[in-house]
Design a protein around this nucleic acid. Structure first.
Lengths: 341, 341
DNA sequence: GTGAAAGCGCTAACAA
DNA sequence: TTGTTAGCGCTTTCAC
């Protein structure tokens, strides 16, 4: 049932090479218009579909690019994938999405599979601050762009949210509401998001002249609701606990809500909570979540553009870091602190 | 930098064919143990990675399977993808995920791209009840399994939730609470989910001896919150409106909540709402959503198994339809109907 | 047990 | 403008 280029050529009575030229818009001019027309018609008639594998073998290009995601079920990533697709849709490239499940063994296998398929480039959302795969890929000059997370070593271009600006907005918002004791539930410090937000929090506390002792930090081992609960418990164990919490992401913030609930503290009347990312449904939680809106689609768009640039001109060593502005979305989980008793 | 089989063979001083046999576990026995060892060692040392494209060209297998999803940002699908990956992770196959954005033009292009890559099989989550692509693929005997949605024509094996059982549970739950006027917000009727749930609703109403006139149906044009609001408005425009609504999915149910809110009706005190799918965060909405839990991961697992079977033995004509049981999760959006005034 | 040779489907350089 | 040739990297008969 499979129809090959040779079949089309035979049908028209031309050489396969000629048919090839006719079929490829870039080389079509090397063939007479009538021949081209007849080849196209025959291809259509026979239902010819080029074999990308064979072409790739010959041209040493697969016209596929790999998107490596830590967890597809984390709603942060699909919109980034969408943005990437949006850009790639206009190009000849196909996107292959793989999911590593936050498992380095799986990641290794997935990447091996993509490389074996001769992917022309990678968009990587799994990077750790210190990431052996990224370093190795950079060494081998594989076209690659990091998204959302960056590495400490600036070896590779990256597109992410501006953590500093974002956290600053969140803290300023709380200070403006009257909070002086603001805590931070920090995400995993081996990820640039966790580390960057933590650093930005310390900065913002300092800039607002808040007492460090009033502004404790609890470190969460993972970006999960469970870890958020644990962190909140830790913060509430302190004598004069904070009246507001800046969480490392939305899931941690949801965990904080649960932690407050356990202690019969109300949000926002007793403690305000700010999330990060603005994943779907954050406007539907109870209370609705004040959070920082990460421009997820735009991150994908920008990353895809950078990658296509890099594939088109691999010689340039590009280590640009594009930080996109985030926007604080004020909802129901933040309010003035309770009056001191 | 790329190292090929020929490089490995040269390093060891054997013929490429021999190296090939040594590298492939299935043919390794055709080679002496010492030779095999030396080849493996050299491959390791040189960092050899087989070129899947070249192998696929020769063997006419790509060892990749395509997963076609209508909308990655719909949280229903990533867990299905996870289930698929779980099974494929143990096999030699790699999963390529593509997103059609509910756009048939995009879908056509994506499928063409996958076929051009010689995918060995497809898992399709985009099927319409009457789907030309599915029919065509069935004709060409492409190994394929449908997930979540099925086609009217039973041409292809499919794995989905048991709509009838699920909707029956939902309606019975409401009847048990005392509801007699139960409405349905039906999803798109060109999808088996929308149609099946609608039919199941009618059945359940009949079986419970409820008056058809008291149990109106509003048809939503899409599975979206927006469409849910519109449908709810339509239902509330009726004189003695229903005291409970079975929504075609969770997003429609959320829209129903908004529609009630517009009219200052409370859920569940004035009107109960049941969703479908149990997407993430449905326990966090306000009120928390009573909904039907679709076994998403299991759907993916089962589909992947079916597909691997089918690839292993393409001769069998398998049109099994596996319907997985769903479970009603009772939360805060359902309660007894208000007392008649 | 190993080597030789052919070919998967396609494209790119070159020749006619 | 068209055809010829060679070869991408791999596997697989078939000789040896």
């Amino acid at each position: 049932v499979k129809v090959s280029l040779a079949d089309v050529a035979r049908e028209v009575g031309v050489h396969p090479g000629t048919a090839s030229k006719a079929l490829n818009p870039a080389t079509r001019f090397r063939v007479s218009a009538p021949t081209a027309r007849r080849v196209l018609a025959a291809a259509e008639r026979l239902g010819y579909h080029p074999n990308t594998l064979a072409r790739g073998l010959r041209t040493r290009q697969s016209y596929s690019i790999g998107l490596i995601i830590p967890d597809l079920t984390n709603p942060l990533f699909p919109p980034i994938a969408r943005g990437v697709e949006e850009v790639l849709g206009d190009s000849a490239y196909t996107l292959l999405v793989v999911n590593t499940d936050n498992d380095s063994r799986r990641q290794e296998r997935q990447i091996a599979a993509l490389r074996a398929r001769q992917c022309d480039g990678f968009i990587v959302a799994t990077a750790h601050r210190d990431d052996p795969f990224v370093e190795q890929a950079a060494e081998q000059q594989l076209p690659m762009v990091l998204v959302n997370r960056v590495t400490d070593a600036r070896l590779v271009p990256a597109v992410a949210g501006d953590e500093t600006q974002a956290v600053t907005e969140a803290v300023d918002h709380l200070v403006r509401l009257g909070h002086r004791r603001i805590a931070h539930v920090a995400g995993p410090q081996e990820l640039s998001t966790g580390f960057g937000r933590y650093r930005a929090f310390l900065d913002a506390i300092g800039r607002n002249q808040l007492a460090g002792a009033d502004c404790p930090v609890a470190f969460a081992g993972a970006y999960s609701e469970h870890a958020g609960v644990a962190a909140m418990r830790e913060l509430l164990a302190r004598p004069a606990h904070a009246t507001a919490v800046v969480a490392g992401n939305d899931l941690l913030a949801l965990g904080c809500l649960d932690g407050l609930d356990e202690r019969d503290l109300r949000c926002p009347q007793d403690v305000s909570v700010v999330g990060f990312n603005d994943i779907p449904m954050m406007s539907r939680t109870s209370p609705s979540m004040t959070t920082i809106q990460l421009p997820k689609r735009e991150i994908g768009v920008e990353a895809a553009r950078l990658l296509l640039d890099r594939i088109a001109d691999p010689s340039t060593i590009d280590t640009r870091r594009v930080l996109l502005q985030c926007r604080l979305v004020v909802r129901g989980s933040t309010a003035q602190p309770p009056q001191e008793g």
